[in-house]
Design a protein around this nucleic acid. Structure first.
Lengths: 222, 222
DNA sequence: TAAATATAGGGGAAATTCCTCATTTTTAAC
DNA sequence: GTTAAAAATGAGGAATTTCCCCTATATTTA
């Protein structure tokens, strides 16, 4: 039987080198190509059967590459690798249902198991990965709630929250948007109500802590 | 002439594997040992001449290991490797003057150059590393200023700022510390003056953004 | 022990927050 | 193409917080 062909995508040469050597040591698998970003993954889809993608890569990241693969080549199997501990990013990645999902920590002990499971047609989530999701389950629920609530905001509310996350005061936002401070004040109250928190200081805290999430959602509305 | 003995410390097996293979391919160098945390570095100091340390490792990180090495074995040479983009952490690492300082991005192209420079008795900072420090120079100056200013805070002020970074309001802090809100209010004003910002919302923003830095400095005062 | 610094807190004006309204403008539905 | 719902804008006013100046006591430190 022919070897299963694997493409490795990671922006660090050292990681690609180590992974390639490890994978080539496995019976039935062969690392046929390694690339340093998601764009090159997309340009080489036909060359491999399985894809091991780092989540964080320049130009096109692992999540974007995974989306393209799932959409256009549902028969190809994808393992996501990550070091990232950012909850919104991880939730997003998990929701895309990669065939395998491994944290880089201790990954070498599981990559073989993961590949074998994929071969059997199963999904596989790494031990550390599971443990992380378990350990942060409260936080994950909180972020999932927050995302749901943020998606219920109107365009204007989203824009105002974005400015709050940029640390503008009510009156500063009013100036930027050419509105009365009263308007911004009112929106702020509604936003706080919608994301279920009290107090402007708490709104500001949440906005700053989730700045990149808010920015992503805001940019989608433009 | 005997090979220079190198110890590799990184919490990822794959990275250690890749690095070991790369280094063993260099004339005059030999990767004699690889470990997964700083504690094991400290326990094996006598076994190597040069140390390649990842900044982020469990138990004892690269910076702590570097400190021990510099203090007790100034003749040993240390290369710090990092992925980390956290300005306070990088400033801290740079101030410890590792012999080599490389970002993991593109590191494989420079590790040989770096080792050769160390052999000549020089210091070496990677291209990406230099570029990062250059690109973020304004931010670095800002953080350095902030650290200077934070170090000028009194114990009580530090404690209050810590609570601000935890997103407590003036009255909540007053309650926690069994003080009058007026006292906290007054301290807050002094803190804002000392770190050269105006407005409580801006103080809160800075406190939240620099939460881990503030926590570190606060814990030192206990 | 005198001077400096840190801690604790008050007074009061100004600004912001918070809540309840009302009006207009979009958007969606029939 | 009307109509109803949703979104956006903003006012009024009480309650709270901020901000700036002030004082008193305690604790360092020179």
């Amino acid at each position: 039987m022919e070897n299963i062909k694997i493409l490795i995508a990671d922006d660090h040469y050292i990681v690609r080198l180590g992974l390639k050597i490890l994978i080539d040591s496995f019976e039935g698998f062969e690392a046929v190509l390694d690339v340093e970003n998601g764009e090159e993954v997309i340009n080489n889809i036909e060359k491999a059967d399985y894809f091991i993608l780092d989540l964080e890569m320049p130009i096109v990241n692992g999540v974007e590459a995974l989306k393209v693969l799932k959409q256009n080549h549902p028969e190809k199997k994808v393992i996501l690798l990550t070091n990232c501990m950012d909850i919104p990013t991880l939730i997003n990645a998990k929701n895309l249902k990669p065939n395998g999902f491994l944290f880089k920590d201790g990954m070498h002990e599981e990559i073989k198991i993961c590949l074998d499971e994929l071969k059997k047609g199963n999904y596989y989530t790494g031990r550390n990965c599971k443990a992380f999701f378990e350990r942060h389950k409260d936080e994950i629920i909180e972020v999932e709630n927050l995302i749901r609530n943020l998606e219920a905001l109107t365009k204007t509310e989203m824009k105002i929250l974005y400015h709050v996350s940029e640390n503008l005061s009510t009156s500063e936002i009013a100036e930027v948007l050419h509105n009365s401070p009263k308007t911004i004040d009112n929106h702020r109250t509604n936003i706080a109500k919608k994301i279920d928190i009290s107090g402007y200081n708490n709104l500001q805290a949440i906005a700053i802590k989730n700045k990149s999430l808010i920015e992503t959602l805001y940019l989608k509305t433009l």
